[in-house]
Amino acid sequence: MSKKQLCNRYDKETLLKQVLSDPRERRVLSFYRYVLIGNPKEFRDSLYESLFELGTLGRIYLAHEGINAQVSVPVDEYGRLRTLIDSIPELSGIYFNDAVEDKKESFLKLAIKVKNKVVADGLDDSTFNASDVGTHLSPLEFHKTLDEPGVIIVDMRNNYESEVGHFENAILPDAGTFREELPMVEDILKEEKDKKILLYCTGGIRCEKASAYLKHKGFEKVHQLRGGIISYAKEIEERGLQSKFKGKNFVFDDRLGEKITSDILTVCYQCGNPSDRHANCANLGCHVLFVQCPSCQEKMENCCSEECKSIAKLPTEEQKLLRKSGRRHLYPTHHLTRKLVGK
């Protein structure tokens, strides 16, 4: 290869064909670490070239503060991926969080982006010690601690994640972003600074920052689930225990969720029938994420409203012109209502 491969060169349709035509099984995993990366741009280019050679697909964010990665790799290259990551001083020994489910088309390309932060938290890290994190609990320890009297369980994910699955009796802040959630959780818990607090999120990275923030704010007994819901689900199943996480674990790839238990905790935004299927509106100018049952998916042609349905049928060039003009959809999608079953 005369020129280094440092970015994707194909459209989505071509990428999907490439992935589906590859006979190899793939394994989905995630990893993260808060660690000083001196030159994220150089780090990014070197990492991209190495991962590309292994057939790695996925989404990776890099910043001076560290790395946050969700990827898939051919099963027969998993060992080489482990060796590669361990050869990088900043990442050596990093914990691989294998997904509950492996789906070949979870990722279609490799994208590594340099960001200001690996998770948008809105915090000024210079005001507190971000490395002074809470006590890590193994999935089994977390499982047992959930039954202790007086513990407070907090879901550190966004509302669209927690609506389809969460731990029993958890506080579910109604926040659309992690940035919004941190001050909200601090306010909710302001009278509970001496209580044992259990934090959890998808893979652990948001709890890492949240636990340090809460300790800085005077909370004395902050604990977090090591490896997040992903690790909990795998270990609890392996041990033959009954999961205290109910429903589906939302994930940030094309799957949009991993089924942990058969419980359905929310309803279709359009018809109100029980459903835990997330979808993005087919009108790319809207693209809102919402819960839609298979029946409404067929009836609405993957759209959130009749207005978006009509736009999605327009010729591609006409849709692009509408988006450029700022007309994302004919009417705002506030008619979509987030609901939990029984609420």
Results as ranks from 00 to 15, higher is better:
S72N: 14
C201Q: 00
D174F: 15
R323V: 05
V291N: 02
C286K: 07
F43C: 10
G285Y: 06
L81Q: 02
L182Y: 15
E163H: 10
S2C: 09
Q242K: 14
L322P: 02
K115L: 03
K217S: 03
L225A: 00
S275Q: 05
H166T: 12
C286D: 01
T83C: 13
K248N: 09
Q18A: 10
E208Y: 15
K4Y: 08
S2T: 09
R80K: 15
V19M: 04
N68E: 01
K244W: 00
K215N: 05
D124M: 05
Y232I: 00
L340V: 12
L189A: 09
F31I: 04
M184F: 05
Y61T: 01
V118S: 02
E208C: 10
K196F: 09
V185L: 08
N159L: 14
R327P: 06
L340R: 15
D102F: 04
L91E: 00
K246Q: 09
K12S: 13
F290E: 06
G240A: 02
L241T: 03
I197V: 14
N129A: 11
T333E: 11
E168F: 09
T14R: 12
K234N: 07
N280P: 02
S87P: 12
Y269E: 10
E163V: 15
V35T: 14
K109Q: 13
K109S: 13
G134D: 02
F128H: 02
Y331N: 08
L172T: 10
I264K: 02
R157T: 14
E77V: 09
H278K: 06
Y269F: 07
T177V: 10
K113R: 13
L54F: 05
E181Q: 15
S131K: 15
Y10K: 14
I152M: 15
L214V: 03
F43W: 07
D147V: 07
Y10H: 12
D11R: 06
E101C: 06
P173D: 06
E298M: 14
E208S: 06
H64N: 03
L36F: 14
H216A: 02
G218P: 08
L123S: 01
L225M: 07
S295C: 11
Y213D: 07
V19D: 04
S106A: 11
I236A: 01
Y331M: 09
V28D: 07
A99Y: 06
Q5V: 14
D22F: 02
N116Q: 14
D125N: 11
S162L: 07
E318M: 07
L15A: 10
H278F: 11
I188L: 11
D45F: 10
G93E: 00
L321P: 05
R206Y: 03
L51H: 04
E13H: 12
K313A: 08
E90C: 03
Y78N: 09
D102K: 01
M300S: 11
P74H: 01
G38P: 05
I88M: 04
N158K: 06
H334K: 13
A170C: 09
E181R: 15
V75S: 14
F252N: 00
N8R: 11
V151E: 11
I37S: 01
G204Y: 00
E192W: 06
L62H: 00
D155T: 11
V288M: 07
K320H: 07
N158S: 12
L108G: 01
C308P: 03
G257L: 02
N158W: 13
K195R: 14
E317Y: 10
V28W: 05
E101M: 04
E238L: 02
S2L: 12
D187R: 15
E42W: 10
